[in-house]
Write a protein that binds this DNA or RNA. Structure first.
Length: 283
DNA sequence: AGCCAGGTTTGTA
DNA sequence: TACAAACATGGC
């Protein structure tokens, strides 16, 4: 076991958990610096405090079970890490560089809306838009004197119109958020996606307004914990051109890049994607 | 100042 | 099917 639980705290004891790397890996947007070396992270209506004791990560929370699952603490990352390293080259370098990254098990619904907002957007602004949505539509919560707002459910999101999303700076994604929240609140079954294979799951998610292939793949990876997809954005496209393309002058489209990378990495595509994304973006 | 950001949708041929 | 333009906004 790579963690122990005591008094509402989870003590992490593994090199495969680096708080700063996880927070900066671009999969989670609702976090803030609390004070030096302490962070708060929110998911759904829950919050945890991330800190260090004796140089090791500590998670403080009212809901231990939720965050043990959220941080994927029961997955053996030494196995994942070594498997990714075995691909060699840039992939091995990326894994070593981002050794402390984990793929979080985030809420499906929150992930859907978060990654609709992510389209053609930068991470700082994505964080701001999501924060303003929570501040305006979320429920008031409190954890040990820290006041925060929950992520609103689809009904609440659907009750706000396109004009609201425009007013909080969502830009042209405003209509996507208004429409998709109405679809999900209206009965679009996002749980049934767990039963589908990757291709059908992708197609189903792409029925949602504002969800194309790349966003669908991010939702599957971060919200459904599916590893057999390879979200291909501008950064992964750069990685592909630099290190995987046979002919740099003939660059396939992103769907084809994604397909090629899944053929290479198979059921470890998600992990490989995350290490490579982090490596390219941090350098 | 101007390009870019974890792209998607819509229109055209 | 394939490609291009339109789409809002702010980070750096």
């Amino acid at each position: 076991m790579e963690y122990t639980v005591k008094n509402n705290k989870i003590y992490i004891d593994t090199p495969y958990f680096d708080t700063v790397q996880i927070l900066n890996s671009g999969q989670v947007f609702r976090w803030e610096i609390l004070n030096d070396e302490r962070f708060i992270l929110m998911s759904k209506d829950k919050l945890c405090i991330l800190s260090e004791e004796d140089g090791k990560p500590v998670i403080q929370t009212d809901d231990l079970e939720y965050f043990i699952n959220y941080f994927d603490l029961d997955t053996d990352y030494s196995y994942v890490f070594n498997k990714i390293k075995s691909f060699g080259g840039i992939t091995e370098q990326a894994a070593i560089f981002g050794r402390g990254i984990r793929i979080l098990r985030q809420d499906e619904e929150e992930t859907i809306f978060s990654f609709i907002i992510s389209a053609n957007n930068n991470i700082k602004r994505i964080q701001g838009i999501i924060k303003r949505i929570c501040d305006n539509l979320g429920n008031e919560k409190d954890f040990q004197g820290i006041k925060y707002k929950s992520f609103p459910d689809s009904e609440k999101l659907a009750s706000a119109g396109k004009d609201f999303y425009l007013s909080i700076g969502a830009g042209y994604r405003a209509s996507y958020l208004a429409k998709t929240s109405q679809m999900i609140a209206g009965g679009f079954d996002i749980k049934s996606i767990y039963e589908l294979n990757a291709q059908d799951a992708e197609k189903k998610l792409m029925q949602l307004y504002g969800v194309g292939k790349k966003v669908a793949d991010c939702i599957l990876l971060f919200g459904y914990n599916r590893q057999d997809v390879f979200p291909t954005d501008t950064w992964i496209e750069k990685v592909y051109i630099d290190y995987f393309a046979k002919d740099k002058n003939v660059v396939p489209d992103r769907a084809k890049i994604s397909q090629n990378l899944v053929e290479i990495f198979g059921d470890f595509s998600g992990y490989a994607q995350q290490y490579l994304f982090f490596y390219k973006r941090e350098l």
